[in-house]
Amino acid sequence: MPLLPPRWRLLFLVVAALSLPVIAGIVWLFLTGSFDEVHGLVPTGPLALKRWRFLWESIGNRPPIHVPLLNSMVFSVVVSVVVVTVASMAAYAISRLSFPGRSMYLGLVLMLHAFPAVSLIIAIFYILRLLGLFDTLTGVILVKASLDLPLGIWLMKGFFDSLSWEMEMAALVDGMSRWTLFWKIALPLVRPGVLALGTFSLLSAWGEFILPFTLIVSTRSWTMALYLQSFIGEVFTDYRVAAAVGLFYALPVIVLFLLGQRYLLNVYSGGVKG
């Protein structure tokens, strides 16, 4: 590898220094989850598999691992599908159609995007109770999807804005309705955006803690985040078991991130044509 030019070397050092705590945390997670004794970041005991026993038996009065795992999967996938579907349609309408209140709606979406969602949690609690959706996965899915939608709509709008008008005119003249035009021309052309937003909301839902923590009580509706949290006690925490569970919880994210980082870059570069 050729040597980096001086100013890049400095940048590299800064980035490395900033990343160090995060990397150390991940290494700690790996080591503590795998070895019997760990001093600092140095394993001193033999490999220990007994803290992974949560994989094959229930621990305490917690549900077996497949329950929160399945719940988390359903939660993330459904949230992601809902966000992508609704955001694409809304964004297409905003980008391409003129309707009364369009600019006001745009402003509202932007404001909602900037709004701290946690401050709504009590109102959300009451609404879900009213709807009979409190303590259900469906309820949390609805809430999480709604909170992710403003970002999704803005992102997808950026992608749709970059499509050529002439191409849509051609599609109309060729005999398409707006609806088929959306499905057969516009949506396939913003595929990078769909994949980016899909991956983004999948990850965001997978890591979501506050909403399930507040809106779910019964253990049968637990997500992985709640399962992990249950190992962190007020008085005593067995960090070794917590680390093993945490590692298990993080693995899918790491895999998905490696697969989807190409698309995720699109989210963070602001919906420039991919």
Binding site: E166, L172, V173, M176
Partner: peptide, 14 residues
Amino acid sequence: PRDRDVGMVFQSYA
């Protein structure tokens, strides 16, 4: 447009 039976060529070809 689809009920008018026209064909169109655009500047950008589209």
